[in-house]
């Protein structure tokens, strides 16, 4: 870019300072100080030693990992199928999966609750069929369903982008050289789709690990994730403890992006079909 036009980035610089740097500095300030103003590690230590926090950390990582795994198990076969049908159909199916994202998030969660509720749609159908009711509403399972529903498109799109661009010649070559379908899959298709897989997994795992809204709306307030404790600390004015936990969450996010970072980068920009 022309050096003279650098000032055009001014508005964004204001944005970056006001809405990215300042909040970060504030979080770190509160995270490493006591209410009296002295430097301390106590907030960070408390974040990983308090029994309620520990339980929340365990639940959060477990939920995020399960949601990622389920999205992957649902998304990968779908992406493979998609890559084998006509382009028009591919676009139509992808469109259908993106469609719910245009709906208001609250509405999605309320709808899921209505479906899962004790007298909800699933249980009404089960009762009509003379079967036992299932209790899913306000449980760990309900949150998991909500996460999978909400984050699935973020898994599908990168996977689809990678898989649909696989070089068909490579697969044909593998078959010509006598490899069976299984061997072709494990030696050619799977390794080549790894970048999309990693990118998809990152894009599900990272928002899932810092989520609090899904847990709040589908967990009935009975399950506390790290995000919920952060939210609770800040609304109760306990900025120091809340910031300690928020820093811990950031560390989780940074670590998981470092692990997956290099492969993930390629596909992140190619999200939309």
């Amino acid at each position: 870019m022309n050096k003279k036009n650098l000032w055009l980035s001014g508005p964004y610089l204001v944005w970056i300072v006001g809405f990215i740097l300042l909040p970060l500095v504030t979080i770190f300030y509160y995270g490493f100080t006591t209410a009296q103003g002295g430097f301390t590690f106590a907030n960070i230590i408390n974040a990983v030693t308090d029994s309620a926090n520990l339980k929340a950390i365990g639940l959060t990582v477990l939920l995020a990992a399960l949601a990622t795994a389920i999205c992957l198990l649902l998304g990968y076969p779908l992406a493979l199928c998609l890559s084998r049908i006509g382009l028009k159909w591919q676009k139509a199916v992808i469109f259908l999966f993106i469609l719910p994202m245009w709906m208001n998030f609250m509405l999605q969660m309320v709808a899921i609750n209505v479906i899962l509720e004790d007298n909800g749609i699933i249980n009404t159908i089960l009762t009509a069929l003379g079967l036992e009711k299932v209790h899913i509403a306000n449980t760990f399972g309900a949150i998991l369903i909500g996460m999978v529903y909400d984050y699935f498109p973020f898994m599908l799109l990168p996977l689809y982008n990678t898989v649909s661009r696989l070089d068909g010649d490579l697969i044909n070559a593998s078959k010509d050289l006598g490899a069976g379908p299984l061997r072709t899959f494990f030696k050619i298709t799977f390794p080549l789709s790894l970048p999309g897989l990693v990118s998809g997994a990152t894009m599900v795992f990272i928002p899932a690990i810092s989520d609090f809204a899904i847990a709040e709306m589908l967990g009935g307030g009975k399950i506390m994730l790290v995000g919920n404790i952060v939210e609770m600390s800040f609304t109760k004015g306990q900025y120091y403890q809340g910031s300690g936990l928020a820093i811990l969450l950031m560390a989780f996010v940074i670590i998981s992006s470092l692990i997956t970072g290099e492969d993930g980068e390629n596909e992140g920009g190619a999200m939309l079909p």
Binding site: D118, N119, G120, A137, N138, G220, G221, K222
Partner: peptide, 23 residues
């Protein structure tokens, strides 16, 4: 008591739960 509690909700959310006879 938590094992017996279906959900922790406030105001309108709690009301709707009972209104719809889910609690």
């Amino acid at each position: 008591q938590k094992a017996d509690v279906q959900a922790y909700l406030l105001d309108e959310a709690a009301r709707v739960k009972v209104e719809a006879e889910n609690a």
